[in-house]
């Protein structure tokens, strides 16, 4: 019984794959790849050493852009959230910049950094910076006032107040923000690679299509993008489950 229940999702995936295979073999145009074709495509990429190279290229860009954004945006956001006047001054500006799709920056990125890694890292940086900044600002503003009062009451110096009260109370919200933002960064890297560079998983998709309609490679690329995105998300989630952070999610 328990085993049967556990097998159901696998059976569902299996059914979808069979349907896909049948639909493709019934379709005379043969431009869409079958699941089997996609598997062969992945093997093909592995053989040429391209898969590993492209995955590393994409991850390299995401880690740089995302880390730079986190290093800059989180301390800045915490400071802005803490000082009410800074928040009043900068919040409207942040609100205007944030909804500009990072992809709309592509012309400027190319103008400033040329075609290449720096431009796409810049785009990922932009795509991550504003969401993280807003998360950090809101996280500070949502700290219950009693925690600050209690911390001050015990005679903490400002530095200690930051490390012993401010930081632990914002971490859970920051982690959620980091997870959502990492998803956005992963979305942006694919787009950036389709337009602005010549390596990476996004490039793989565009290149496979343009150079000979290799749709098996296109879908293989998509699957790998999905899989890596899922791994990143799961990794971030496991941070949230650490015991010393879990307090924030267990109550209400």
């Amino acid at each position: 019984m328990g085993l049967l229940v556990r097998l159901r999702p696998i059976a569902f995936i299996g059914t979808l794959l069979v349907l896909w295979q049948v639909a493709v073999s019934l379709n005379p145009v043969h431009i869409l790849p079958s699941p089997w074709g996609v598997m062969r495509g992945i093997v093909d990429l592995l053989h040429h050493g391209l898969l590993f190279k492209y995955v590393v290229a994409s991850l390299f860009r995401v880690s740089w852009g995302f880390s730079l954004a986190a290093i800059l945006a989180i301390p800045l956001g915490l400071a802005i959230g803490w000082y009410q006047r800074a928040n009043m001054a900068l919040h409207p500006l942040v609100q205007v910049f944030r909804p500009i799709s990072p992809l709309a920056w592509i012309p400027l990125a190319i103008l400033w950094f040329g075609v290449g890694d720096a431009a796409s890292i810049f785009l990922i940086f932009l795509g991550s910076f504003f969401p993280l900044l807003l998360t950090a600002i809101n996280a500070v503003r949502n700290i219950p006032a009693v925690y600050i009062s209690a911390g001050r009451n015990f005679g903490l110096r400002p530095v200690d107040l930051i490390f012993r009260v401010l930081y632990p109370s914002v971490v859970p919200q920051l982690l959620i923000g980091l997870r959502i933002t990492l998803g956005v960064a992963w979305l942006v890297v694919v787009a950036a690679e389709m337009i602005a560079v010549d390596s990476g998983l996004g490039f793989l998709i565009v290149d496979a299509r343009n150079a000979g309609n290799r749709y098996d490679l296109v879908v293989a690329g998509m699957m790998i993008i999905g899989l890596i995105g899922l791994l990143l998300d799961t990794g971030m989630r496991s941070l949230e489950n650490m015991k010393s952070f879990r307090w924030a999610y267990s109550e209400d």
Partner: peptide
């Protein structure tokens, strides 16, 4: 200002949930 020689107790809302 507040002073550690005089401590506040705020219902139970003041305990730090992360400790």
């Amino acid at each position: 200002g507040p002073d550690p020689r005089r401590i506040f107790v705020f219902q139970e809302r003041g305990v730090f949930p992360w400790l």
